[in-house]
Amino acid sequence: MVEDIYVDVKLKEPTERPAEKPICICISSLEQLVPTKPPFSPLLWEFMRNVYPGGISCIVPKGDWLLKLGVGAAYDRVGTKDSIMIRVPDHTVTAHLCDITGPLAITSANPSGEPDSTHHDMVIKRLGHKIQGVLCDGQSNELVGSTVVNCLKIDEGTIHFLREGCVPATKVQQIFERVKNSML
């Protein structure tokens, strides 16, 4: 099955997303973070350099650096009190959009609790009455959501998987071990 990548441009009405489900930030590249000077360890930076861009979302410490990134009043609405999930997609249109607009607060394009939308037609069928548009970025091999990696204890030598998605957890763990060993 071939997937079209989408970004819902503007909601017409609120979604049924539970308030306790954190919203993540999508950026065009790690370079967008550099001027904000997040207090990430060298190990976390290197791990992210090795997994981005792609189908991985990293949970990292939240802080004032997000205000410098431009989240403004959305600060309390993204992530949790102490953490934020960051995604750097490998989709040209989405990355270009983030270059133009700055970071985007994003959620999955399916009603909460339902299977991932794997084609723009699914997004329109499920959410078409709530969105004003869908931006397609061509074919993709991602047929499930991103792999979510909790990096909050990376400096203790460990990462945890909250969801295995389009990138196998074993592959991400191998990347982490390689990066960790290269920094010894």
Rank of each mutant, 00 (worst) to 15 (best):
E3R: 12
D4I: 00
I5V: 14
E13D: 06
T15S: 11
E20S: 08
K21H: 07
C24I: 14
C26H: 04
C26E: 11
S28C: 01
E31F: 04
L33G: 03
P35H: 13
T36P: 05
P38F: 02
P38R: 13
P39D: 13
P39C: 02
F40D: 08
E46N: 10
M48N: 07
V51H: 03
I56A: 04
C58E: 09
V60A: 05
V60L: 08
V60I: 13
P61C: 09
P61K: 14
K62E: 03
W65N: 02
L67Q: 09
V71T: 01
G72F: 12
A73R: 14
K81A: 15
S83F: 09
I86R: 04
V88N: 03
D90S: 04
H91E: 09
H91Q: 10
T92Q: 13
T94L: 15
A95H: 00
H96P: 00
D99L: 13
I100Q: 14
T101N: 11
G102D: 04
P103R: 08
P103E: 09
I106M: 15
A109P: 10
G113V: 01
G113Q: 10
E114G: 01
E114H: 11
P115H: 06
H119F: 07
D121S: 13
V123K: 11
R126N: 06
L127I: 12
L127V: 02
H129L: 03
G133N: 13
Q139D: 04
S140H: 09
L143A: 06
G145T: 05
C151A: 12
K153A: 03
I154Y: 04
I154V: 14
H160S: 09
L162G: 12
P168W: 00
A169M: 10
K171M: 06
V172M: 06
I175W: 03
F176N: 01
F176A: 01
R178Y: 09
